[in-house]
Amino acid sequence: MIRSGRKRHWSRWLYRIQWLLLAIIALAVTAVRLGLLHYMTAFEVFKYAGLAAVVVALISILVFIWGLVKRHPEARSAALWAAVLGAIPVAIPLFVVGEHNFRAPPIHDISTDLQDPPAFEAILSLRGPGDNSPDYAGAEVASQQRNSPLYQDIQPLPLKMTVAEATELAAEVAQKLGWRVVAKSPNQGRIEAVARTPVLGFTEDVVVRVKKEGDGVKVDVRSASRARTFDLGSNGERIRTFLHQMRRRTERR
């Protein structure tokens, strides 16, 4: 007996292609986190796969309109799914990075003190030969940070407590934020920690310095990417979040 039925519309390939592109992006993310793929190669994958997903999404919108006019439910459904899937490679970076961070200057080392940035010490042993220099790059980087509207709020935090108390609090906040504290010296007013970015897991090193100032202390923070040369605002966002949490905890006391 010969079965008869309506032939499936070609539009189903639109969302199949989108799933394939999303799978490619997911594999690239996994490969970067596992150290199997260089982040610059991954960015190229994201760029071309994301662009292809947007193109397919635009075609899908046209197919959806055609499906409405021709009253073709299968084409409408397939095109709608493809358009939604095509928005994911655009939506996720905007959600994770933030639209404002795409305007960040091309630097990877952010500090609350641009004249005398806290120096890395204990963390130096964790860096490899291919990593960025742990030394602050100086006036050029400081000028880019100083002149960027994105970093105007990255300032030292004054607190009414002792150096040891502020250092202990800084270590507590760092651990609460998921950083790995590798060194803590309450008497010297220093902690050093390692943090990772949410999606790709880029390693970024952090040093917190606490100095006595007047009847309280001044907290300075420096966060620097270990491998990337352009951080898309991640180091500034980390410092901002840390200082906000420090401020909130002191207000509760």
Rank of each mutant, 00 (worst) to 15 (best):
M1E: 02
K184I: 10
K211T: 07
D131G: 03
W81T: 09
S125G: 14
L243Q: 03
E165R: 09
S185W: 01
V54K: 12
K218R: 14
Q155S: 10
R196Q: 10
P73W: 00
R249C: 00
P158L: 11
A193L: 08
L232C: 02
V45S: 11
F230P: 15
L68P: 09
R190H: 12
V207H: 07
E44I: 06
I65L: 13
A183L: 14
I92Q: 05
S185N: 15
P93G: 06
A195R: 08
R190L: 14
V182G: 09
Q188A: 15
L27G: 14
D231A: 02
D116E: 15
P129Q: 04
G35L: 03
A49F: 07
K176S: 15
V182M: 13
L177N: 10
F102R: 13
R8P: 04
V219W: 02
V199A: 12
R209W: 01
A52M: 14
T250A: 04
L37R: 00
Y48C: 08
R247A: 07
P134L: 14
Q18G: 07
A183W: 15
V173C: 11
A193K: 01
L37D: 01
S223D: 08
A227T: 10
V56K: 10
F102I: 06
V97R: 03
I88F: 11
G189Y: 05
L51E: 15
I239P: 15
A195C: 12
M40P: 03
I65F: 12
A82W: 15
N101V: 06
G130T: 00
V56R: 12
R252E: 12
T203C: 00
R209N: 10
G201F: 05
R127Y: 00
L243N: 02
